[in-house]
Amino acid sequence: MSALDIHAPLVERLLVQFLREELASAGFSRAVLGISGGVDSALVAALCARAFGPQNVLGVMMPYKTSNPDSEGHARLLASSLGIATKKLEITAMADGYLAAHDVRDRMRRGNVMARCRMIVLYDQSVDFKGLVIGTSNKTEILLGYSTQWGDSASAVNPIGDLYKHQIYQLSRHLGVPAQILDKAPSADLFEGQTDEGELGFTYADADRLLYLMVDERLSEAELVERGFDVQFVRRVASRIAATQFKRVMPLIAKLSKRTINQDFRYLRDWGK
């Protein structure tokens, strides 16, 4: 057993309650999310189906012309296993309206534009469906900053943002996410042949073990090296976390007045609900 292991029924119960209560306090009981065919969105779809009933969950598939067709197949497999509604809304015309017109070739820029197109679609669909956009970023990728700011990271509430990838798999298995989704290599599918682990340069298993000890257990660099981690790996991950902090906070506001939003004007979002 790993220290990262969770008791899946307990976490399922908590996250179903979280979804119901936080949406209710915003006046909603329906959920919209992008389903990519990957494990993170599969897990969130499964949680939403349990929280709100499958008829109140809309899974949106948003392929670009170069997206792997397997992604859509897996998304459809998931949706039919849960009984949730789906929509396929291609982003090719939308994205190319900008990418082609302005000859954007850089892979990262193109990927970010696609992620932000999907955000626009989801937020608009959520109005039509009278639901809220549910986030699908996990703790590992949020800490590593492996996301597009205001793109795939954008959501109203995120049930899985405090679960490491290892825990995502555990909970997904418990909730019956199809094996085809569990068994494939994680990929953002922004360009052909992309895998998360290939792009990050390390495995999720190693990242999870390190992040858990570094963040949750507050071990120092020396203590982590003592536990067998390569010092270069530790430093690389630590600097990556620090360098991507901007993705985890709201934009900075220049404080000028006596009372400034988020500095000394501090209220929860559940304020007045």
């Binding site: 057993m1 220290a3 292991d5 969770i6 307990l10 976490v11 858990y212």
Partner: peptide, 12 residues
């Protein structure tokens, strides 16, 4: 507040 889900604990 509830916290602590590691070590496969059935209890927070």
């Amino acid at each position: 507040p509830g916290r602590g889900i590691d070590h496969a604990s059935t209890e927070l």
